[in-house]
């Protein structure tokens, strides 16, 4: 696991500053502004999320991190007063174009929420329901097993697949939610502070899991925990008051931030 020691690594990262766009962007926000009523939550954000990498979005609470994340799979549609200007493209397609179906978007761009939210049904049903409604034809048992294995939950639950998901611990529930998202074979997984409701041991397991998964998926994670961002992510975006202050490779952002505000926040001197 990567541990960033802010003081040690200085010069090396500062010299090599590969642009985030080195790998082709899978998701990109263009001049994205989101308002709740009159209050802007995200202001003119331009950001390109690289494929098969983990990108962390950090910033003080209320800075618009979650709002930005939800714009990537149109979950903001469910906040009635949210208004969106600018655009988000996913592999070149405008997600907010007239004829785009948000349901189609979310089949490909999954999401894991802050609080584990398993369906009050069996463990197996939690996984198989998404594929089932989307017309999955194939071995359901295999699908469940595969998803649970990918989420490193299989060994813990394989004997009680038909028990209620509510009987699992919080950490297990969250991994179940990740498995549920994986079962849809998504292109991108958005994670909204996935560990904030979990204990340190469960947190570590989820971070390990993210590390495993990044070869297969693109992951965008919102976190208020800077250590977590530093540990797991390849790229980091720092948001403050709805504006994107800095975006770059995680090491660079944490060691040689270009902006004074980033420096203060990363050093814990913020606010």
């Amino acid at each position: 696991m990567v541990t960033v020691k802010v003081t040690e690594t200085t010069s090396a990262a500062a010299v090599t500053q590969p642009s985030p766009s080195a790998s082709p962007p899978i998701l990109a926000a263009q001049d994205l502004t989101i308002r709740y009523g009159e209050k802007p939550a995200v202001v003119s954000v331009n950001v390109a999320i690289p494929e098969n990498r983990i990108t962390a979005i950090i910033g003080p609470s209320g800075c618009g991190k979650s709002t930005l994340l939800r714009a990537f799979n149109r979950m903001n549609d469910y906040i009635p007063e949210a208004r969106i200007d600018g655009g988000v493209t996913y592999r070149g397609r405008d997600l907010y174009a007239e004829n785009v179906d948000p349901v189609e978007v979310r089949r490909r761009i999954g999401m894991v929420f802050q609080k584990p939210n398993p369906f009050p049904k069996s463990i197996a049903k939690n996984i198989s329901w998404g594929p089932a409604i989307n017309g999955f034809r194939g071995d359901e048992r295999l699908l469940v097993e595969e998803a649970l294995k990918k989420a490193v939950l299989w060994d813990e639950v394989k004997d009680r697949l038909n028990e209620s998901a509510n009987a699992l611990s919080g950490g297990q529930q969250q991994r179940l939610c990740i498995a549920r998202a994986l079962a849809m074979e998504p292109d991108v997984i958005l994670m909204d502070e996935p560990c904030s409701a979990l204990d340190p041991v469960s947190t570590a397991r989820i971070e390990d899991l993210m590390y495993e998964l990044k070869h297969l998926y693109t992951i965008v994670i919102v976190t208020h925990n800077m250590q977590q961002a530093a540990r797991v992510s390849d790229f980091t975006a720092f948001l403050d008051a709805g504006r994107l202050v800095e975006f770059g490779e995680t090491e660079q952002v944490f060691t040689t931030p270009k902006d004074k505000r980033t420096e203060d926040y990363v050093a814990g001197r913020f606010g």
């Binding site: 799979n73 979950m75 469910y78 349901v103 189609e104 979310r106 089949r107 490909r108 999954g110 999401m111 894991v112 929420f113 609080k115 939210n117 398993p118 369906f119 009050p120 329901w129 998404g130 409604i133 989307n134 939610c177 549920r180 998202a181 079962a183 849809m184």
Partner: peptide
């Protein structure tokens, strides 16, 4: 019925009616 259950279903590509039919109404 808590909102989180609805969001969970939406996030894996369920339509509103599927969400209601399979999760909200049973709950």
């Amino acid at each position: 019925v808590p909102k989180s259950i609805r969001l969970a279903a939406f996030a894996i590509g369920a339509t509103r009616w599927q969400t209601v039919r399979y999760h909200v109404l049973p709950a």
